[in-house]
């Protein structure tokens, strides 16, 4: 005869924890997750509307004033999300996104891993050297693109020195396009690697918690 055992909640929690391989740790605090998904959504809208403004697709009969409005509004949103992330990093004294020389020393080994010359990636802090390079370049290029965006938004009324420095509206437009191409080339790499390298990292960007495999199971 099967007896139904009623277990208390703390015990159930403990059992569930024990049922999981490795340990579960908090990896992404709430503000980082808000930034990530908010910024990703805003940036996708900014890039798509920017491409539409750059070269209108013949199969889309969109109202261009609305496309421009969306581009500007989501541009401001993405800047706001970035400001949240910067404030969060300052408050928590989080330097996990800033590449250090020690991180970059592992870059050749990481490339060897990606090119199947090594079986495992080199040790890293929270993010590996490739991630750090890409994330940090995104941060800098997004700031540059936003700055140039503001310059073109003000049409030479303000930030005149930027116009002179860069050499005119056409060069400004060209620079923004090249930055867009960089984002479009690196975002798929980011998505691909986050889906195939460590799925629990992706889970952490939703729930906040990540499964760290036990050392003998790596």
């Amino acid at each position: 005869m099967k007896h139904h055992v009623k277990l208390r909640k703390p015990l159930v929690k403990q059992l569930k924890k024990g049922n999981v391989k490795g340990t579960i740790v908090q990896s992404q605090p709430i503000w980082v997750r808000i930034f990530h998904w908010g910024f990703a959504t805003s940036l996708i809208v900014v890039i798509l509307t920017g491409l539409q403004l750059h070269k209108p697709a013949s199969f889309l009969a969109l109202n261009f004033s609305k496309v421009l409005t969306a581009h500007l509004v989501f541009g401001w949103f993405s800047m706001g999300f970035l400001a949240i992330r910067i404030a969060d990093a300052l408050i928590r004294r989080d330097d996990s996104l800033i590449p250090k020389i020690q991180d970059l020393k592992h870059f050749p080994q990481l490339m060897a891993y990606y090119f199947f010359l090594r079986s495992s990636p080199p040790p890293a802090r929270k993010y590996n050297s490739g991630q750090l390079l890409i994330y940090f370049s995104w941060f800098l290029l997004f700031l540059l693109a936003s700055f140039l965006g503001l310059t073109s938004y003000w049409q030479g009324e303000h930030l005149i020195w930027v116009w002179r420095l860069i050499g005119g509206f056409q060069v400004l437009r060209w620079t923004k396009f090249i930055i867009t191409i960089y984002f479009l080339a690196t975002i798929p790499v980011h998505i691909y690697l986050s889906l195939t390298e460590d799925i629990s990292r992706l889970q952490a960007m939703v729930t906040g918690y990540e499964r760290k495999p036990s050392p003998n199971n790596r």
């Binding site: 055992v5 277990l7 059992l15 024990g18 049922n19 999981v20 391989k21 199947f116 195939t196 390298e197 460590d198 799925i199 629990s200 990292r201 499964r211 495999p213 199971n217 790596r218």
Partner: peptide, 22 residues
């Protein structure tokens, strides 16, 4: 082909094989 994706997915998503006894 090299089985890296499968290995990574197993490593980071599968639960423990031995269920703890109560």
């Amino acid at each position: 082909y090299k089985g890296r994706i499968q290995k990574n997915l197993l490593r980071t998503s599968v639960k423990a094989q031995h269920r703890p006894a109560v």
